[in-house]
Structures are given as structure tokens and as C-alpha cells.
Amino acid sequence: MSELERRYRRLLALYPRDHREQHGEEMIDVLVAAGGDRTRPGWKDVADLVWGAFRLHLRRMVAGGVEPRDVLAIVSLLGPIAVLAGATESLHELAWWVQAGALGGMPVWQQTPDAPMWVVWLAVAVLVVCRQRVAAAVGAWAGTIGLVLVATVSERSWSWAYADSGWVLLGALTAVALTLSPGPVRGRELAGRAPVLVLGAAVVVAVAIGVLGYRETVAEAACLVVLVVGAVVAAGAGSRAGRRAALVLLVPVMTTMIEALLATIDAFRPNDTVTALLFYGPPLVVLLALGGLLPRGVARRPDEPLT
């Protein structure tokens, strides 16, 4: 292998894996043939290859070729685990009362009204791992409706419309996935390596950071980063279905960002309905636009498997 070819191969490593597998060797052939007597790629070739790799990665991120049922199958496996990160606030309250040595006097209904729902979601996660899909689906619907009801009737009335919107939305999508998709068994085939373990670890770390660094900007940002990395790795960054499933799992991150954005606007106090639209609308639009829930792009004909 010539030095020129070796350098071109290094550049081709930037391309999406499926593209490399399909076109890598012929691209090397073309590049070496066009390279003539050179020993290293010219800067125009380097720029052209880097730009091409970027465009193909971008295209794969936002365009077609994904079966929505596969995306939902991964969500059905990982959604119940991701939802558990929503228990951070309740766990912080619990930790505070434990630290104060006054756990027995804690007004549960006031401080952690949603605690029973997180127990339900923990049960759903266990049921999914134990392959009890039907029971898990029932639990997921109960957990989602419960989150809304608890938020509505407790002192945190309407929090489902903003602070809890991400968890309610993710819970609902998980319930849909458990009900309609091929299920967690199929999800396990499609997701990344040890998906339950990876996302479970990420959620534990994120919750721990959130509890210890409650309402501290750096800690909150660290929580989001851990959840993003955990969701992407667990769902499978190497597959289109995995990336789209990760997008669904990151709905609470989206709503957190919306909350942070709206907090920067002074004197912006929309009513509850507008608030709900602002928190639920954009994540759903993003999921639909980027193919998290529906396929995008032109379907490839089976006899033309070019990429």
C-alpha cells in the first residue's frame, strides 16, 4: 500500500460506516488514480473529502431509511429507564429530609407528590428487563397518566405543562412504543451494546449529580450531558434507528432547554395553555422533522442499494 493510499484511507475513516463499506474501495481506486505521482493528498482533495464526509453524516442524521417501528422498539426498551431521571427532584427532597434527620416528619404529599409514579416507572423498567411487555405497557400508561394527575391535583398544579412536560411526553411516547412497537426484545437487537446497563448507569450518574448539585447551573448542565451521551450510546449511535430513538429519549433535555430559554425572557408570563403548547409543541415538531417518529426522505428501491 502506497503512502498516498494510506493517507486517503485515513481521510475516508471520516465517512459514515455504511458509506465506507459500500464505496470505500472504489473511492480509494478513484483517488489513487486521480492522484498520479503524488505521495500525499493535495489540500483541495483533503477539503473535498472532509466536506463530503460532513455532508453524508448530516444527511444520515436527518434523512430517511428508518423503519419507525424499529425506532419505537428501541424506545420501548430504553424509555422506562430514561424516564427514571425525572425522579431527581423528588430524590433531592428525600435526601434533604434524610440529611435533616426528619424523614419521619416529611409531608410526603407536599414534598414529593409524584414519588409513587416514579415507583411505578421503576417497576415498568424492571418489567421490561424481565420481558413482561404487556404488564410494562399497562404500567407505562398508568405512570404517564399518574404523572399528569398528580401534578394537576397537587400543589405543583400545572407543572405537567412545563417543568414535568419532558417526563410526561417521554412517558407517553414510551407507553405508545410499548403498546405498538415490536417491543423491547426487538429493541435489544437494534440498540447499542449493553443498552440497559449503559443507560441505567447514565441515569444513576445524572440523578446523583442532580441531587448533589441541585439547582446549580454546572450540575444541571452536567446532568444533561450525561443523559445525552448515555442515550446516544445506549440507543446505538452507529445506526439510524438508534440515533432517532436517542432523539426521542432526549425529549426531557429539549424541554429543559425550552425552560431555560423562556426564563431568559423578562416579563413573559403566558397562560397555562400557551405554556403547554410551548413545551409540548417544539419537541414533537423536532421529532417529526428529524424523523424520530416518522420516516423521512425518499425510500430507496431494493434493487438500488447504493448506500
Binding site: 463530503g52 434493487d303 447504493l306
Partner: peptide, 21 residues
Amino acid sequence: LRAGTLYTALDRMSSDGWVAI
């Protein structure tokens, strides 16, 4: 044209059903 541009274009054109192997 350079190889990067060519194969990016071929990727898109194949998606659109304009070219095939």
C-alpha cells in the same frame, strides 16, 4: 470534480432514484 464531491452527489442521486449500480 473531486472524489468527495462525486460520491456525495452519487449518494444523493441514488437516493432520488436517478442513478443505479
